[in-house]
Design a binder for these strands. Sequence first.
DNA 1: CTGCTATATGCTTCTTTGCGAGGC
DNA 2: CGCCTCGCTTTGAAGCATATAGCA
Length: 821
Amino acid sequence: MPGPPAVINLTEDSDASELDADDFDDVPLETSEAPDALDDVEVDAHPYAMYYTNAAEPESVQDSGMQIVLEQEQAPNTPKKRGVQWTSQDRKNRVLVHQISVLSLLAAARMRNQWCNDIELRDTLQDMVPEHLVQKLFAIHPRREPERRERVRMFEGFVHDLVQWWASRFRLTDVSAAAWRQPSQELLCGKHLPPETWVDGWITESPAARMKRQRQVRKSKSRGAMEIAIFPPGAAAATPTYLRLLPPPDAHSLQRTVAAAKKMAGCRETSAILFCAMCRALGVPARLVVSLQPPPASIGAAKSQGTRKPALAQRSEEVTTSDEDDFEPLVRLRGSRALELERAQGAKPYYIEPVDTRTPPTVWVELFSKPYQHWITVDPVRALVRPTGNKHMEPLATNRQNKLMYVVGFEEDGYARDVTARYTRVLNSKVVQQRPEAPGRTKGHGVQEWWPSVVRALHRPQKLDRDAAEDAELQDNAAREPMPSSVGSFKNHPVYILDKFLRRDQVIHPPNRVGTFQGMPVYLRANLVHLQSARQWYNEGRTIKEGEHALKWVKTRGYTLYNKRVEEQAMTEHGQVPTEGLYAYTQTTLYTPPPVQDGKVPKNAFGNVDLYVPSMLPAGGVHIAHTAAAKVCRSLGVAYADAVVGFEFRKFRSIPRMLGVVVPSEHAASVWKAIGHAAEQEKRAELQKRQARALKGWKHLLTALTVARHIEEQYRAPQQAAPSEKKRVLNEAQAERQLRDDVPALKPMCASPLVPPPSPPPSPPREKSIVSLDELMAKEDARPSKRRIVVRRSTPEVRPARKSTRRAAANARGNIRYMDD
DNA sequence: CTGCTATATGCTTCTTTGCGAGGC
DNA sequence: CGCCTCGCTTTGAAGCATATAGCA
């Protein structure tokens, strides 16, 4: 998880994302507003160092109890080859995590950009600027210096001096712990980290330690720490790694940012944020530029990164020489008090991979030079001022902590602009391809790409002149990127494409060649056209225009048994592979079905109406989307046609999915009415049927009892035989009830409310055991006439209705009381 | 060692209108 | 007789992403 988004505030950004809500089903998410409670903490003394021990957590550490559990579906065991077997769900998760990270980072950056407008912060910073610099700035005015070229030079000189002054004054602290950089890949790649390891501002916990902490939290009734459980990728069930969030080390609130300004000390990112605020205070249009560092969207990228990283497991002094990137000694994030605590508990220091402040940053500033009418790139940490930035802000490909993927500049008014093109020379060949939904992954026409939609939400709705000029500049920058130098890199290239990478349903139209590579013509991806067969277009409610010729002929791909047979037959008869023509969208037109004429709905060859999309409804017709519609139409004598709304595929056979009928519009109302009527009647009939079944059951039972009594009367043996006889009869009765087990719960005909069955009802106290059926029936006769019949399956008592005219039924599952009417 | 290419492998997508027996 | 339900039918190929080996 990336460090910065201590607070997530998604507004427009969340609208821009095309994340399916379903994807979040498994993520129980509870958030609450997180007030800034650490504001009074000193910036200098590693404000969170004291929390780095397992000592009791101050209540202010975490305000929201948030739990994110990305669970994976249990899949059947697949034989493990080596390493982790990635499932398709893992891949989807990676993209999702990437996208959520990007949005979160944007939100975090936007919030910091807002802080730059804070009056107190601006005043604090403005007061610090030396007088001679302020004078230098004021001197740049058309009235004082009419020569524009001179003003351009003066502005650059001013910015240069300002940056020099800033870099010499601002003290860098907390650099590594607070760095905005690539999150570590170990966990995402399924590597197990030992407990008490620092991971991007989180700390790993052993299950036991977690339980213990949670017990303490419960006892003290305080809010728990924010924690997540990360499951390793792969199909096999595994134990997650538990992470607890540490307090953010950087100036994560406005108050702390102001404090950092007063101290003129903080991390690299804080330096850039404060510099931006200062420039705005001086009246110079300034952008806060952020190179977002989300985890990679593809597994391959993450894997190669993750495996090459030095083992974070070793966390002590010896790690300092583990990597060539390590220029700084081990960062010990300890205050003196924390160190004491640590010594007392025998804890080890956390290892945090260092950051080299000489490498390109992930946060910097752009200043708008009014005389030059261009944005100037400024890195206040390395004291760099450059009219163009790509050489100095692009990290090396080998840099694992900083990957240039999205660079966004936030302006004073809160709008942002995608300025990635300014800072990379490999925008199309590398950068774009790292984003999800790169050209190779999207398909078809009209597919919304994710990042462009995010950018649209960030950009100013109406372009300023300088925005338009910048767009041209950035486009020019991108256009200067050279053509790929290998066949492979043409694949999925966002600008160019070779014939050989065209898919079955793609064609270049118009086929304007823009170059040649190894003898192959090179085309622009912009001219790529997605094609579909006539049938496919028909399924979307479109037909091929008159006189259009197919742009491409391809081998048919019969899927159903029928079509396969047809293909085979064609093969044997003509000796050539059957082909079908493919057409572009522009060659099609909306399909208009023949209209309803003389009250008749025109049918197709199958005797129904194709209604795959609403536009395929014949003129003068109405779709009655009700399953009972056909029956009603038949009885009413209304001409109708079944509506086919789609297909289902089972066992290589396509089955039309029917839903309702199409009728002439003049009959629609009457058909709907009849449907309502029929439904009511059906309901009544159903009820009657159930009652008839219940009555039959009762009749059966009573007959059985009568017969039993007759038999008993005729063949009764002297006294002793009676009990066993009674038992037999009762068993019979019970079997009878079991036969009726499927009788559904009967709703009363009248409107009396159905009382839910009290469960389980106490058995009614029995006065004394019944010895014979005679006794039983005599008892029944003796009872006062009751309007309520209770049948309890659990009791071997049988209390049939005395009069056969009484309608009665019982739910064989027992204990449902039926109110007779 | 890195980057490129070819090959192997495993997963995903594409597809687009039955029939007859028997019961009610 | 008409309508409904049930059971049987069959079980691919292309395309794509990724992993891996080999080569320059």
